[in-house]
């Protein structure tokens, strides 16, 4: 197991978990959010291919479209 920060909260996940796995674990719909990993946006097509590392900082947020 490794621990990461998901929106400032510590989360334990299995070693080798992808960004997609993290969202599944939290039952977050993939088409409802954008991801920032260690201060860099990760486009959705890359989520299955990026494995979380110990102490990664992950931010999950929705689009804001109002104005």
């Amino acid at each position: 197991m490794i621990s990461i920060f998901l929106n400032d909260e510590v989360m334990s996940i299995a070693d080798g978990s992808s960004l997609t796995d993290v969202l599944k674990r939290r039952t977050i719909a993939e088409n409802g959010v954008a991801l920032v990993l260690n201060a860099e946006v990760v486009p959705r097509s890359r989520w299955p291919h990026i494995m979380c590392q110990q102490d990664d900082t992950l931010e999950v947020f929705s689009v804001v479209a109002g104005g």
Binding site: N31, G32, V41, P43, R44, S62, G66
Partner: peptide
């Protein structure tokens, strides 16, 4: 990239002022 790279057009949007 562009706005669509961040937010693909098939995203579900819940947050509007209305």
């Amino acid at each position: 990239g562009c706005y669509h790279c961040l937010y693909p057009s098939d995203m579900s949007v819940s947050q509007t002022c209305q």
